[in-house]
């Protein structure tokens, strides 16, 4: 066989960083490593942010007060993933959902499992399924996924912010 003629070559580029999550998010992640979910409350409009970034974009002020939340909530929005993502160990089809914890004013992205795909809907109540305590670290992956918890669905109008303007 003749030598293969190459018209390109691959030159990998990588950069290393000491990444920081920020002071507010660091406090959140430390609590997550203890199995607690702690958000931050805006001093002006009382909105609760989880995970917190240290600010309330509604009011443009810093958030300081910490609020412990339960690991239960509901599905604010969702999508069913059918296409495998290279390097992702989860086998499709699976559900990615925006989870709104009880008492929180924003949602975050997580998985939903232990569910028949045709049952997933907005407003459905879910609860966290935690990894074994020995595996906990400073990451929301301590929660393996959320699963249906039963009970009446949340009316989606409940997601609208009703705090003081």
């Amino acid at each position: 066989m003749s030598e293969e003629k190459k018209d390109h070559f691959i030159s990998p580029i990588s950069l290393d960083y000491n990444y920081t999550a920020g002071a507010a998010t660091t406090r959140f992640l430390k609590k997550v490593s203890e199995g607690k979910i702690v958000g931050q409350k805006c001093p002006k409009c009382t909105a609760v942010y989880v995970p917190p970034r240290g600010s309330c974009p509604r009011c443009g002020v810093a958030t300081e007060e910490e609020v412990e939340l339960v690991d239960k909530g509901s599905v604010e929005s969702f999508t069913i993933v059918h296409i495998p993502i290279p390097g992702n160990p989860i086998v499709p089809p699976y559900v990615c959902a925006m989870i709104r914890l009880e008492g929180a004013n924003i949602s975050f992205l997580h998985l939903i499992q232990e569910i028949d795909l045709k049952d997933i809907r907005i407003g459905m109540r879910v609860e966290a399924v935690w990894k074994d305590k020995s595996e906990w670290d400073t990451t929301l992956e301590n929660i393996k996924w959320f699963k249906p918890s039963g009970g009446d669905d949340i009316d989606p109008s409940e997601y609208r912010f009703k705090g003081p303007e």
Partner: peptide, 25 residues
């Protein structure tokens, strides 16, 4: 700046220019 994220870096200077002018966003 150690643990400070972009929000925590930006907020003090934005608040300061608003303080100087009496304006808000």
């Amino acid at each position: 700046a150690k643990a400070a994220n972009e929000v925590e870096l930006i907020m003090p200077v934005v608040h300061e220019v608003f303080r100087q002018t009496g304006l808000s966003q």
